[in-house]
Design a protein around this nucleic acid. Structure first.
Lengths: 191, 191
DNA sequence: ATCTTCATGTAATAAGTTACATGATTAA
DNA sequence: TTAATCATGTAACTTATTACATGAAGAT
């Protein structure tokens, strides 16, 4: 019925900034919302078509040479739907799938060094994301200098803070595990 | 081909601790891994059947009265598959869908008070989860006192730390937003 | 009596990924 | 000329949720 999936809101929000092609949307998603809301071409193009049918966006064909390109703009109705979503008090969806943490959950089945290896893997993924987000800050700074001083996007700040925290957690947990292990050697399990 | 989905690993891991019914697994998932790896009956029961066909688990019918109940145990082959997964160096899956953060990403379209409302919503969901996790610690403490002093499960510690951090981020971001807003009033946007 | 929990399962649907196909333009 | 990027799209598949159906046992 509603024709507006959660991912449609990403599209509407991005088109509210300025018109874009499906390809543009995908590029932008990959460099901005990816870490908290990803989207693939297989979603974006069909979604765009549905949104156009529902009158929430409008496509305009703007080929350059023999290369086709359809730029979509948001309509007034689209803006209304977007605003309604943004201000809706409904419980926002929050889902996490963290395979590394799931493995750590079963650490009882592993030896100390294997568990620590899991912590290292988790740490590395957070560190990699962190590096990437910190790279984005450079780009944001450049823009900030150019146009009217926009502060760093809040979700970027959130991401950096979170992944820093996660890296620290991995380190602290490893240290804790090692100290527990050496304690146990002095004072073995009682019967 | 492989018959072992990511969610199958949850099942295998839980059965590695001790035999359980599909119902038991669902209860346990809901009170333990839910926040980083959820699973529904619609996954668990068909998965259990597939795992049994693949010889990784074995079901034993243990009705009590007229109430049917099938308890599954992990086989040696199942243990091998589980161990292989736990120690595999493959990039672990990590996915997040955070609708509140997505809305905050589009805060440019909103007024200050509407943006702050988004922060409040996000804060409330983290606080609620935090309360729930801290409740779990009580249960863990009880168990710890009973059997041989197992420390708090690492993912529980992780969850508590993360949601505390997230609540603090919401508070700090709100404060920042408010101070920026009052600054702007003294020193309005230039042309 | 009636509600909750125990217990198992499926059908319909939704959501999303991956891989593929196609082809033009631009930079090396 | 070759590779990368721009650009659009679909088909097959996987994954998972939701809602429903069924019914026994235990608690109020």
């Amino acid at each position: 019925m509603s024709s507006v999936s959660s991912t449609s809101h990403v599209i509407l929000g991005m088109l509210a900034q300025h018109p874009r092609s499906g390809y543009d949307i995908k590029q932008y998603v990959d460099k901005s919302t990816r870490h908290f809301w990803a989207a693939s071409y297989g979603q974006i193009y069909p979604d765009l078509k549905r949104l156009a049918e529902a009158g929430l966006v409008e496509g305009q064909s703007t080929p350059s040479g023999g290369r086709q390109r359809t730029v979509f703009s948001i309509t007034d109705e689209g803006r209304a739907v977007l605003y309604e979503w943004l201000t809706s008090p409904a419980e926002p969806l929050e889902e996490v799938r963290d395979e590394a943490l799931l493995k750590i959950f079963f650490a009882d089945l592993l030896r100390l060094e294997e568990t620590i290896a899991l912590l290292h893997i988790k740490r590395a993924t957070h560190q990699r994301t962190l590096d990437q987000l910190e790279g984005q800050v450079q780009g944001a700074e450049a823009q900030r200098a150019a146009q009217g001083l926009r502060p760093m996007p809040m979700p970027l700040d959130y991401g950096i803070g979170f992944h820093r925290w996660a890296v620290a957690w991995c380190d602290e947990t490893e240290a804790l595990l090692r100290s527990e292990a050496s304690q146990e050697q002095l004072q073995p399990k009682r019967a």
